[in-house]
Amino acid sequence: MKKKTWLSFLLILGLSLVLAACGGGDDGDTDNATEDTGGTSVELGQKKLTVPYVAWAREAISTHILAALLEDIGYNVEVRQVEAGPMWASVADGSADFHTSAWLPATHAEYWDEYKDDIVQVKEVIDKAPLALAVPEYVEDVNTMEDLKNNTEFGESVNWEIIGIDAGAGIMANTKKALEEYDLDKWTLKESSESAMLTELRKAYDNEDPIIVPLWKPHWVFGVMDMKMLEDPKEVYGGEGDQIYTVARTGLEEDAPAAYKVLEQYEEDYDMLEELMPKVWDEDQDVADVAREFLDNNPELVEKWTAGIK
Results as ranks from 00 to 15, higher is better:
H99D: 06
V120R: 14
D72I: 00
E240V: 01
F294R: 06
I126Y: 09
E43G: 00
T37S: 15
Y53E: 14
L19V: 09
V82K: 13
P86N: 05
E78P: 07
I61H: 12
W281H: 12
L19S: 12
H99V: 03
G223P: 00
A84K: 09
W112Q: 02
A96Y: 03
M229C: 05
E181W: 08
L70G: 01
V79W: 01
I211C: 01
N159H: 11
S62P: 10
F98D: 06
V125K: 10
S62W: 05
L215W: 00
Q285A: 09
R249M: 09
T5H: 10
V125Y: 08
A288S: 08
H64A: 06
G223E: 14
E153T: 11
S16H: 06
W160H: 14
Y111G: 02
A57D: 04
G74Y: 00
K203Y: 07
S157N: 03
A256K: 07
K123E: 04
N76H: 02
E114K: 15
K3C: 14
G38I: 02
I212L: 03
E140F: 08
S193T: 15
A248I: 02
E110H: 02
K186H: 15
T144W: 04
G85N: 11
K128L: 09
H64I: 03
S157L: 07
D282E: 13
Q46A: 02
A21P: 10
I119L: 04
M145E: 06
V51N: 06
E275L: 14
P86T: 04
A67K: 08
P278N: 12
A92E: 09
G251D: 11
D271M: 05
R80I: 09
A173W: 12
L49N: 08
T5Q: 07
T199H: 07
M227S: 01
A92F: 02
P214W: 08
E161A: 11
G238M: 00
D242R: 08
G74W: 00
C22T: 05
K304R: 11
A307F: 01
L263G: 01
D27Q: 11
E114A: 12
N298P: 14
H108A: 07
I119W: 04
K203W: 13
V135Q: 01
S95P: 00
V122K: 13
P299D: 11
D117P: 02
E83N: 03
N143C: 04
E35V: 05
A55M: 10
Q243Y: 05
W6M: 12
W88E: 06
Q46N: 05
E83V: 02
D206Q: 10
A129P: 13
K203G: 06
K186I: 11
Q81S: 10
D26H: 13
K304G: 06
D36M: 02
I12M: 15
A129C: 12
K116D: 08
Y182V: 10
I165L: 09
K177I: 09
M229L: 08
W6G: 14
N207G: 05
G23A: 10
D29E: 09
